[in-house]
Amino acid sequence: MNEYEAKKFLARYGISVPRGFVAREEADIERMDLRYPLVAKVLSEEILHKSDVGGVILNVGSPEEARDAFNRINGIFGTPVLFEEMLRGNVEVIVGVTKDPSFGHAIMFGLGGIYTEIYRDVTFRVIPITRGDAEHMLQDIKGRKILEGYRGKKVNREALIDLLLKVSAIVEENPEIEGMDLNPVLLSEEDAVVLDAKIVFS
């Protein structure tokens, strides 16, 4: 399942994802009905760290720039290109799913970027989770203050709790899911939007 398919899958369960469009050839861009600026991404299941290998172009401002972006990414990787509307937000978090040998499916939540990668400031719960579990998860990380409107950067905690509950429900309904990375999830005052998604099925 590539990123676009994964997001379609999540959207079916009411999870917010950016509006997107897949261009397989340059001519497709004419039919693209998205609001600029856009982000262009290599669309491939094989490439895990897209931005590290030059597979992501930000701030695509016009149809001309979109064509350029398509040709650059398609030229390097030979894959289709995913265009998405760029969104503004205040905090990036990670939500994930893993399958533990003794406890089975578990959901993870943490602050994105270095908080996850360097400080490993994440917390897990076994699926299914209750609303109380989800609320407890937000309290459980060391950087919890960041979710409380630190320096005026407000986030919608309810939207985040709702996302955690939906991910838990998705896994219950689809036990063949082996793992999931929703990373990053962009939190704003209004919403929690999944900007990148990987889902692994067994």
Binding site: L48, I94, G96, V97, T98, K99, D100, P101, S102, F103, A106, M108, G110, T116, E117, R120, V122, T123, F124, R125, V126, E178, G179, M180, D181, N183, K198, V200
Partner: peptide, 21 residues
Amino acid sequence: GRAASLHTGALGGSDAVADGA
């Protein structure tokens, strides 16, 4: 397994999951 390629898989040693449980 394949899930180890994900962030969540790498962070979720059985200990972290047990802690949440």
